[in-house]
Design a protein around this nucleic acid. Structure first.
Length: 367
DNA sequence: TAAACGTGGCC
DNA sequence: TGGCCAAGTTT
């Protein structure tokens, strides 16, 4: 259906000229990025995972740190997961980090530490989906496989005037089919990266710089004057608000209670201050809930500024309450009483980094 | 197929 | 301010 129109448009393209124009532009204009210093498959892999749904400028410092701490497949495979998460702290989508370490462990155990260049073996690794598989194969190994990300879909939707909804899961295969016809067998790495770099620097979502585009002459959308109408992308649903109480328990030695989140779901295995949904416990029962759940007696409470945190699919509204604890009993083993300085090694998601910053202000010199 | 899964920057 | 966007994968 959608394919028929694009099949016709692809036949109007001079493929050799398109490849040459794109690849030459890429070598001319490509940014110098730390993961482009060589083609080490491990570095390519780590960079591709970090770049998922994440801007280049955000990734750069994380990539540098990660490579310093885990320079090889073996180093990452044998690291503590907590240290890996700490290095990933603030980057988001933390299952990427846990899947990456798990996959690297499989590479050590099953493939003698060599990142596979076999599409099936590579694609079966945790966290390696169709895009990442194609990116590693083409960039690290020079194998002509499609690497279709959001950039590639946007660029090709314009060049070929493809009107498939790029928000839909099934649309990716249309673009993969297009790439298979267009890709350079001689330099699939520069071709795939060129498509993405073009999307990042020229063929941008809002106002594409068509006058600077190296493949303007090949672009159906530009020819027809519809470049700003593409790609077609349906809107995401609005996030649902979730009101919580965030509870800071402080004992007489200025130690704070933190707990580790479950090993799956949102922010898996990350640490937090005790959290409870307001739909589960209302204001009147909060104090009793804290005493019961954490086996403490209280000598006072206080109020800290509210924290709002927007995730991709939900919004946390944290009402932050301070509880001064008189006596404590043994706590569960996913919990820790720690002084302020001892919090440092524990990976916290951003909403709790905000909270920790509030504590630093609130307690000033006390801690 | 659609929802879950983070975060920061931009307008 | 709130919606949109960024080199996606898993379930």
């Amino acid at each position: 259906m959608e394919d028929s129109k694009f099949t016709q448009n692809i036949e109007e393209i001079n493929i050799e000229a398109f490849q040459t124009d794109l690849i030459n532009w890429f070598y001319q204009e490509k940014r110098n990025l730390p993961w482009r210093e060589n083609q080490d498959p491990y570095k390519v892999w780590v960079s591709e995972i970090m770049l998922q749904q994440t801007k280049v400028d955000t990734v750069i410092p994380y990539f540098e740190q990660f490579m310093k701490k885990f320079p090889t497949v073996e180093a990452l495979a044998s690291a503590d997961e907590q240290e890996v998460l700490k290095t990933w702290e603030g980057l988001g989508y933390y299952s990427r980090a846990r899947n990456l370490q798990s996959a690297v462990q499989e590479v050590v155990e099953t493939y003698e530490g060599k990142v596979p260049n076999d599409p099936k073996q590579l694609g079966d690794l945790k966290g390696v989906g169709p895009y990442t598989k194609g990116a590693i194969l083409s960039i690290a190994y020079g194998i002509p496989e499609p690497a279709v990300d959001g950039n590639v879909m946007r660029v090709l939707s314009r060049i070929l005037r493809i009107e498939a909804d790029i928000a839909k899961a099934g649309s990716r295969r249309i673009f993969e089919a297009a790439v298979r016809q267009l890709i350079s067998e001689d330099d699939p790495s520069a071709f795939n990266q060129g498509l993405m770099e073009l999307g990042a620097l020229v063929c941008t979502p809002k106002s594409p710089s068509c006058m600077l585009c190296p493949v303007q002459a090949h672009c159906k959308a530009f020819h027809d004057g519809v470049e700003t109408e593409l790609p077609i992308k349906t809107k995401a649903k609005k996030q649902k608000k979730q009101p919580y109480f965030a509870c800071v328990l402080v004992d007489q030695h200025n130690r704070f209670l933190i707990e580790q989140r479950p090993n799956e779901g949102l922010l898996a295995n990350m640490w937090q201050f005790p959290l409870v949904e307001k739909t589960d416990v209302d204001d009147d029962h909060l104090q009793a809930w804290v005493k019961e759940k954490y086996r403490v007696s209280l000598k006072g409470t206080d109020l800290l500024p509210k924290i709002k945190h927007v995730f991709s699919h939900i919004i946390w509204e944290l009402d932050v309450r301070l509880f001064y604890v008189e006596t404590t009993e043994e706590q569960a083993n996913n919990q820790q009483w720690l002084s302020f300085g001892e919090l440092a090694p524990y990976p916290f998601p951003v909403p709790f980094q905000k909270l920790i910053n509030q504590l630093a202000t609130h307690f000033e010199s006390e801690i």
